[in-house]
């Protein structure tokens, strides 16, 4: 297949994925609305009677049941969106004959795929579907911004990016970023839920998810920063120069370090969540703000 045809297929797959994720978001939204309605009518949780109660008297179909039936459909739609996205990323890489993260559009595309895949992996075995719509919404926004504002046709790399460290450093940053994203959403959801005093409704499982994700993400982010420093030494002759991109990577690292320390500090456990969210905000600013508004050595990425 020709390279430009491959690029076209990548674009089509992105559009298909946008459609699947939109459908996913609508499905989740309807499920959430139905669940809220049923919670309003019957405050008692559905499975309170235990399995015997369910088999003994088949209950009439309620909006809560419909919500429960819709949620797996939403998850399936998200999974198909993720598969389409991964295919789009692969097609983009084949079209360019290099790793598909050589400019901001490609970074946004690959990061969207990474967030969706990461969430689908970490949700297994956990009751954390309350954040699923938010993950879908965030992936949609990121992908939408990438397609509408950051899109660039397939092209070769600028010479300074032509290095194996591009593969290692940026891949690590994308994986860590996807984990940070899921961690931040879970943290926010947990803080909202526990503020309402509804501790039992999955808030501790959300906290556990966020903590696990952050524990995995932090070493990967550390590795991404170190790999970046090695690359910088190889390209510019110094491993750390306080370039804005480096500075914000450092700020992100320090905020997440503060988050992990705060979790183990008496009186700081509640505030720890805000530190994780601040770390994620610094990560986002590093990708969008630094690339777009601040001149620096990393400004070649082709906005």
């Amino acid at each position: 297949m020709q390279a430009d045809e491959m690029a076209l297929w990548s674009d089509r797959l992105v559009l298909a994925s946008l459609a699947a994720l939109s459908a996913c978001l609508v499905t989740y939204a309807v499920a959430a609305a139905l669940a809220a309605r049923s919670a309003g009518r019957a405050p008692a949780p559905i499975l309170v009677g235990g399995p015997e109660a369910l088999t003994a008297s088949p209950a009439p179909v309620t909006s809560g049941d419909r919500a429960n039936a819709l949620r797996p459909a939403g998850t399936w739609l998200m999974a198909s969106g993720a598969v389409l996205l991964v295919a789009a990323v692969v097609a983009r890489g084949l079209a360019a004959s290099r790793v598909p993260w050589g400019n901001m559009y490609e970074f946004g595309l690959t990061a969207s795929a990474a967030v969706a895949v990461t969430f689908l992996v970490v949700r297994r075995g956990r009751r954390v579907d309350v954040v699923a719509p938010w993950v879908a919404a965030l992936v949609l926004v990121l992908l939408g911004v990438s397609v509408t504002s950051l899109y660039t046709p397939v092209d070769d790399l600028v010479p300074v990016l032509d290095s194996t460290w591009l593969v290692v450093h940026v891949a690590a940053a994308i994986v860590a970023g996807a984990l940070f994203t899921v961690g931040a959403l879970a943290t926010l959801a947990q803080m909202v839920l526990s503020r309402g005093g509804r501790e039992g409704r999955g808030s501790s499982e959300l906290g556990d998810l966020a903590h696990t994700v952050h524990l995995v993400a932090f070493p990967i982010w550390t590795f991404a920063v170190i790999a970046g420093a090695v690359w910088a030494e190889n390209a510019w002759g110094r491993y750390w120069g306080w370039d804005p991109k480096e500075t914000w990577a450092f700020i992100t690292w320090v905020l997440y370090a503060a988050h992990l320390h705060a979790l183990a500090t008496g009186g700081w456990r509640r505030r720890a969540g805000w530190l994780a969210v601040a770390g994620f905000a610094a990560f986002l600013f590093n990708f969008f703000g630094v690339n777009i508004w601040i001149p620096g050595l990393h400004s070649y990425a082709g906005v």
Binding site: V254, L255, A257, A258, H261, A262, A264, T265, G266, G267, W268, L275
Partner: peptide, 9 residues
């Protein structure tokens, strides 16, 4: 640890 967290921030 509290000081460490504040200094990190």
């Amino acid at each position: 640890m509290r000081t460490a967290v504040v200094l990190l921030i």
